[in-house]
Design a protein around this nucleic acid. Structure first.
Lengths: 312, 312
DNA sequence: ACATGTTGCTGCCGTTTCGGCAACGGCTAT
DNA sequence: ATAGCCGTTGCCGAAACGGCAGCAACATGT
């Protein structure tokens, strides 16, 4: 079922590996064959596709254009294959998901487990990474579905849904703040705080608000792992900040308390976006899971915003 | 610049012509070559792509799926080509437009003339047809942009814009109705009427309204050409119905009068949709023209609805 | 400075694939 | 029945492809 020119496949492999010999190893062919196909391709396009450095190949501008086209072709071929397969009742394939850490604790495992119990022949590849890396993985075709903080997304990605969750403080049950209904940033900063490092998007949400305050904050802990911050907060080390998405288990065990942030009378929102490549049509089984994902996140958004109604 | 398997191109040609020998003539190759490529393709897919009848070849279900994939590939290849070309300053290509007749008198010629005066290397192919044929031409990949009555469009088409224009009666300057500001359907039916045949979408707009009336209408003329109906109305033969889009010249020469229809106090809308294939990214020069088209139609919508403000 | 490893590229040559020609059986229309 | 068109199939030359070995250019490690 490989009815596309070898040039296409070879080019794709070379782009991913950044090397002709590595691509050749990946494809189980001689490097000379790969080299020739690339040269032929460049001749037909009429422009070099790679810049040859001593250590490998880098895409030129034209090369990036071709890479986009080739990705469109190969991903659409995948969809065609799965369409044909689902015609004969076989509903299988692999869904590749890139998401940020806050989904890893509850949302994604729950969803995947539920989906697998219904469609056992659909397998999953999940990759946890930073928000901008999520978008980059989508653009490179390494993931089918991406979930990230809703930054400004490039035009070649499509935002399927946008859900907003309230940012809140996370404290141990014994913490002095734990009995409040909501907290302000000032109140939190009176205690030791577990800050997010800039690689986490929570940093970029809170930094502008903290900068507005004149107070000098308490000496704080900094971390780059949502999970770690959560566990630190559970041990009473300090106040952490995140959405309620990733703390279902620990609040259920009553070790942690989630306190919605109150910023001068209004909530602090953390916008979560679901993304797919814009130029791509998803296979039916992927589209189906995507719908479930959107529905589930919408459900959680509704539940959480009902549990902590607006302050205003 | 043809770096896709011959199988792809051959399959595409066979699908369009419905015959292997005709495709071979089109491609300037022997029919045996085409036949073999199709057989090879069917073997790789693992399922027949065509049903062989005595009169040629018809797509099977799997064949239609592959046709969709192949169209996506070839159209995206076109986009890639034009992207590369525009990189070296050459901004050229062909825009293929399928539209209904009402656009042919003024909107489209004006727009194309204006666009050509700026971008002389962009050429156009325009095809006038019925609304459902417009959608079908888009789906078959025979047109890049489609303008049609906004019916329910299939999911593989994307509605870029939706503009509504008021349906009105068209009468000669000397017609008894000509001095009114608006008319009702009853008032029109008191005179000879030029009816649209069912192949025109105006028929489907007016038919439900006429059916509600109890009166027996005057003996009428029926026609299937917007242009003919307009010219008949200008000669005082009867009352025609259309939007004001297609009658700019004749109203300018003051031969025709346009009277917005008043249906029990509310206007009668004719919804015009602009469509493109959903699974396709347009070349830059096509996208640019598309934007101008949307803008121009929006402008006309605004102007006309300002000239004939709502009745309610 | 030198050796070593890696990079992409290029003749050479066997294998595979492709395309053109002619012919065959099946079908339709006259 | 005859003529015409259809898709398919052997046969064969031509073109494309892939593997092997060797090349120069460059980076790295000693």
């Amino acid at each position: 079922m490989r009815f596309h020119s070898p040039s296409i496949q070879y080019f794709h492999a070379v782009r991913r590996t950044g090397s002709i010999r590595a691509a050749a190893r990946l494809l189980n062919v001689a490097s000379s064959a790969v080299s020739r196909q690339i040269l032929k391709l460049e001749q037909e396009v009429g422009s070099p596709l790679f810049e040859r450095t001593a250590r490998g190949l880098t895409l030129t501008t034209v090369g990036e254009m071709l890479a986009r086209h080739v990705m469109n072709v190969l991903q659409d071929l995948d969809r065609f294959r799965s369409d044909v397969a689902s015609l004969s009742g076989a509903w299988h394939g692999t869904i590749s998901i890139a998401c940020i850490e806050s989904l890893a604790e509850s949302v994604l495992p729950d969803l995947i487990a539920a989906h697998r119990s219904r469609a056992r022949r659909v397998s999953f590849t999940t990759m946890v990474m930073g928000s901008s890396d999520v978008l980059e993985a989508l653009r490179r075709g390494e993931a089918d579905i991406g979930i990230a903080m809703a930054l400004r997304h490039p035009p070649d990605l499509r935002q399927v849904a946008l859900k907003r969750f309230r940012l809140g403080a996370l404290v141990a049950r014994e913490h002095p703040l734990a009995r409040r209904k909501t907290v302000t940033l000032e109140q939190c900063l009176a205690f030791p705080v577990i800050h997010a490092l800039p690689e986490l998007s929570i940093y970029h949400l809170l930094q502008p608000l903290i900068a507005q305050l004149s107070e000098t904050p308490e000496p704080a802990i900094q971390a780059n792992s949502i999970d770690l911050m959560r566990e630190l907060a559970a041990r009473g080390v300090g106040v952490a900040f995140q959405t309620q998405l990733g703390i279902v288990r620990l609040t259920r065990d009553a070790q942690l308390v989630f306190l919605p942030l109150d910023n001068a009378g209004s909530p602090v929102w953390s916008d979560l976006g679901i993304y797919v490549r814009a130029e791509r049509t998803l296979p039916a089984f992927t589209e189906s899971f995507l719908q479930e994902l959107v529905r589930e996140l919408g459900e959680r958004e509704r539940r959480e915003n009902a549990a902590y109604p607006h302050i205003a």
